[in-house]
Computed example of a mutant assay.
Amino acid sequence: MRPLTIFYVIVFYVIAQLFWWATLLIAYNPVRKWMVVGEGVVFLSLMTLGAIMLHKAFNRERRMNVQKKNFLLSVTHELKSPLASIKLYLQTIMKRDLDKETQRGFIRKSLLDIERLDDMVENMLLASKIENNSYSFPKENFNFSELVDRVVGRLQIHVCSKEALVTNIEPDVFVEGDKFSLSAVVSNLIENAVKYSAECDPIFVGVSKLPNGKVSFKVADLGIGISDEEKPKIFNRFYRVGSEETRKTKGTGLGLFIVKQVLDNHQAQIKVKDNTPRGTVFEVLLD
């Protein structure tokens, strides 16, 4: 707040000086009264406009700094949690005489945590490359149905002990695009749905070819939903839905930012709608 206070003091001082000198000029030469008033109004209008723009810039920078701080805290937590879990599993295997099945279970859980870390690192690297315009998005024609099916299969084991990801994937739907970044889109949308849903609530994933030739990819959940006010903000970098319940969820605020950037590069659309009876539907339309 200190820079803003100094800024407001300077603005107040300049405006006070303007009125003071205008008063002196009018008193010295009353004939030029309207010229002084006119120029004063123009100067005051420009000064006010500049002050408003600078005020918005200060607030925007302050919000970005808060978001960056929250991002660093989130990343630290996201890194420490799986690392601590992996360390505990490995230490248990080392110190105790466990049967092979138990060892395999611990190793399997450790690998899941490593996959989670790998996904997070890939997200951060992709977001960095997109921001720096250093990612080329190499396009190819590939089977999008197989890609979604493979991602669903990988994430299914993270979600719940039962089949929580319910799919309706039309076979052999092909798209022209960057396989790696579109895979990140699919992963992030599904993981986002899981994150904001109750444990073991079904997540519906669908792929279909529309009559107009476009490819539809849908992810629908029965979670907490997104308010109309926040829908335009969710694709901003570091932004996370602001309810208290949402803040308890894990995440870095990069997932939906990556989704939007990748889809913009593919000239694709993404729609965010309310689900019935509750939750959110994300629909991606690819050419």
Rank of each mutant, 00 (worst) to 15 (best):
P3C: 01
L4C: 05
V11T: 09
V14C: 08
I15C: 09
L18P: 05
W21K: 08
W21H: 14
I26F: 06
A27T: 09
K33F: 11
W34F: 14
V36H: 10
V36R: 02
V37A: 12
V42Q: 05
L44V: 07
L44Q: 03
L46F: 14
L49F: 13
L49D: 06
L54D: 06
L54M: 14
H55P: 05
A57C: 06
A57G: 09
R62P: 04
R63K: 15
R63V: 08
M64L: 15
Q67A: 15
N70D: 14
L73K: 14
L73Q: 12
S74A: 15
V75T: 13
E78C: 09
E78G: 14
E78K: 09
P82W: 02
P82Q: 05
A84I: 12
A84P: 03
L90C: 06
Q91W: 10
Q91Y: 11
L98K: 04
D99Q: 09
K100N: 15
Q103K: 13
F106N: 04
L111C: 09
E115P: 02
V121L: 12
N123C: 05
L125Q: 11
L126Q: 01
K129M: 10
E131R: 11
E131I: 08
N132T: 13
S134R: 10
Y135K: 07
S136E: 14
F144V: 01
F144T: 01
E146C: 06
L147K: 00
L155M: 09
H158D: 08
H158I: 02
H158Q: 13
H158F: 15
C160W: 13
A164F: 10
A164N: 08
N168I: 07
I169K: 09
V173S: 03
G177Y: 01
K179P: 01
V185W: 00
V185S: 00
V186Y: 00
S187K: 14
S187E: 14
N192Q: 09
Y196W: 10
Y196C: 02
P202S: 08
P202I: 09
P202Y: 05
I203E: 01
G206F: 03
V207G: 04
K209C: 04
L210S: 11
N212M: 10
G213P: 08
V215T: 13
F217D: 00
D221A: 03
D221E: 06
L222W: 08
I224E: 06
G225C: 06
I226R: 01
S227Y: 09
S227M: 05
I234T: 03
I234V: 07
F235E: 04
N236W: 11
R237W: 05
R237Q: 15
Y239N: 08
V241H: 04
S243T: 15
R247H: 15
T249Q: 15
G251I: 04
T252Y: 07
G253M: 07
G253Q: 03
L254P: 07
I258C: 04
V259A: 02
K260E: 07
Q261F: 04
V262R: 00
V262D: 01
N265G: 10
N265A: 12
Q267W: 07
I270P: 02
V272D: 03
R278I: 07
R278Y: 03
T280C: 03
D287H: 12
